[in-house]
């Protein structure tokens, strides 16, 4: 079974890196911190729900993707996030990366 919690924690770590880059935009530090905090909580909440459903033998969204497909997807997203060097684009991705993650998980993207 796919370790959704472990995968999502890798995304959360990527979010932290984006936030560190985005925080270099002085006027946006508070927004960046708030954004990272809120989306991290959302991702962890979804990971917990997916894991609970899977443990109960219920449909678990994208966690039921063929073996490796979800890992490949999230790995590609993290690599994409890590390619970002511009702090303004990093702020955009602080919102984008959680949405792409949720779509890959087969969950509502918000």
């Amino acid at each position: 079974m796919t370790d959704v919690t472990g995968l999502v924690e890798r995304v959360v770590a990527a979010l932290d890196r984006l936030a560190s880059l985005g925080e270099t935009v002085a006027d946006e530090q508070i927004y960046v911190r708030d954004l990272a905090l809120v989306w991290t909580a959302r991702l962890r909440s979804v990971a917990a729900e997916v894991t609970t459903r899977a443990d109960a033998g219920l449909a678990a969204g994208g966690a039921t993707l063929p073996s490796g497909e979800l890992e490949t997807a999230l790995g590609a997203m993290i690599a994409e996030a890590d390619r970002i060097a511009d702090p303004h684009r990093a702020i955009d991705w602080l919102s984008t990366l959680p949405q792409t993650t949720l779509v890959a998980l087969g969950e509502v993207a918000w």
Partner: peptide, 20 residues
Amino acid sequence: NGETIDAEIWRKMFPTLFGT
């Protein structure tokens, strides 16, 4: 919003749209 312009990488990121 992204950096890469490699379509295949984006297909991998969205398995619910392009995967099996």
